[in-house]
Measured scan of single mutants.
Amino acid sequence: FKEKSRGVLREWYAHNPYPSPREKRELAEATGLTTTQVSNWFKNRRQRDR
């Protein structure tokens, strides 16, 4: 994950830790990652924050 991608994901996570499938697609396009990578990032981040 590039620093820029992580920044976008972290910013989004601060507002909404549970993005919808459509939001995940938009995030994937914005970061250049796949929707699966975006989903996993959020899942792992939520797990880490428990």
Rank of each mutant, 00 (worst) to 15 (best):
F1A: 02
F1V: 07
K2Q: 10
K2H: 14
K2L: 11
E3T: 06
E3A: 05
E3I: 03
E3L: 06
E3F: 03
E3Y: 11
K4F: 11
K4T: 14
K4A: 09
K4D: 13
K4C: 13
S5H: 01
S5F: 06
R6K: 09
R6N: 05
R6H: 07
R6Y: 15
R6E: 14
R6Q: 12
R6P: 08
G7N: 14
G7Y: 10
G7V: 14
G7D: 15
G7K: 12
G7H: 12
V8Q: 08
V8C: 05
V8M: 12
L9D: 00
L9C: 01
L9G: 00
L9M: 03
R10N: 11
R10V: 14
E11G: 08
E11Q: 09
Y13D: 04
Y13I: 01
Y13A: 05
Y13V: 02
Y13L: 04
Y13T: 01
A14S: 10
A14K: 13
H15I: 13
H15T: 14
N16K: 00
N16E: 11
N16P: 03
N16R: 03
N16L: 01
P17C: 05
P17R: 08
P17S: 07
Y18M: 12
Y18S: 09
Y18W: 08
Y18I: 06
P19W: 00
P19V: 05
S20A: 06
S20F: 05
P21G: 07
P21D: 09
P21Q: 14
P21E: 14
R22K: 15
R22Y: 14
R22W: 14
R22A: 14
R22C: 14
E23K: 09
K24Y: 13
R25S: 15
R25C: 15
E26S: 06
E26Y: 05
E26T: 03
E26K: 03
L27M: 13
L27C: 03
L27K: 00
A28K: 00
A28F: 00
A28M: 00
A28Y: 06
E29D: 14
E29F: 05
E29H: 02
E29A: 05
E29R: 04
A30H: 08
A30Y: 11
T31D: 00
T31N: 05
T31F: 02
T31R: 00
T31K: 04
G32A: 08
G32W: 02
G32N: 09
L33E: 06
L33I: 06
L33N: 02
L33M: 13
T34Q: 07
T35L: 09
T35R: 10
Q37K: 11
Q37W: 04
Q37Y: 07
V38Y: 01
S39H: 13
S39M: 04
N40A: 09
N40R: 13
N40C: 08
N40S: 06
N40V: 10
W41H: 03
W41S: 03
W41P: 01
W41G: 02
W41Q: 00
F42Q: 02
F42S: 02
K43N: 13
K43S: 15
N44Y: 04
N44E: 12
N44A: 05
R45C: 14
R45W: 04
R45V: 11
R46I: 07
R46W: 06
R46H: 03
R46N: 10
R46S: 06
R46L: 07
Q47H: 10
Q47P: 10
R48Q: 11
D49W: 01
D49R: 03
D49E: 11
R50K: 15
